[in-house]
Amino acid sequence: MSQDSILKVDNLVMHFGGIKALNDVNFEIKRGSVSALIGPNGAGKTTVFNCLTGFYKATGGNIMLDACGKTTSVIQVLGEPFQASDFLNPVAFAKRLKYKMFGGSHLVNRAGLSRTFQNIRLFKEMSVVENLLVAQHMRANRSLIAGILNTKAYKKSEEEALERAFYWLGVVDLKDFANRLAGELSYGQQRRLEIARAMCTNPEIVCLDEPAAGLNPSETEALTKMIRVLRDQHNTTVLLIEHDMGMVMNISDYIVVLDHGEVIAKGGPEDIKSNPKVIAAYLGAEEGEEVTL
């Protein structure tokens, strides 16, 4: 993996029974970029996200995440089945056993990747600020005894967590709603809260699944600004799925186009706009038809 790429997906394959949702997907995301994953409905964009974040265990291929000072293989930490060669190599065996017993999608997040969902998945019965505090548990003093006795170190770590939570509430403009239940917020506010929650886990790369879906133009404008803030002020790499082409072309440095589980094009916005394969995928290949994206 080259030095400046944070995420590298090689030959990613995902089958659901006989359905090949993803078929040999390859791409690479540069550190500090805003990249977009686009494609017509059913192209497999969300499936790619689910594989990246450990929500699904990919059928085959390799996902390497180079964040937090180490390289993590996303598929490995989810716990793979044993292979014949493991029984000859005790180190490989021990590693696989460890991830089989203690592995899981929480390790992907701890390796520096976090995400949001297309259909919002907030903890609706917790308050807005609690949603953000839950996401920060890895950094804090977690001892239960310290919690019950309310020790100084515990209080301090709680205060820091609260401060960070309010900082992110400020960024997404939800400070006034801190003590409301997350389920009571409006749709656009819930979307922003989900982004704040993803950022509270301190990721190096954040995957946003259709962040602008259901937002009005001015909200989309604000979202675009926010994504730039994430990249420029927090050195976070952003990977997003989006159908709003205006927004995608506006903020992305790099675009990957999927269709029928395969990458049909990748490159900068200008290349993608004029790529005939992309136009065909979006509008159906009609001879001699004038199309613009």
Partner: peptide, 20 residues
């Protein structure tokens, strides 16, 4: 904090796991 994590897991275990 433990209680918060319990409540989060109760509401949406998959999402809690995605948050680490």
């Amino acid at each position: 904090k433990l209680g918060r994590m319990c409540r989060a897991t109760q509401q949406d275990p998959k999402m809690a796991s995605i948050l680490g």
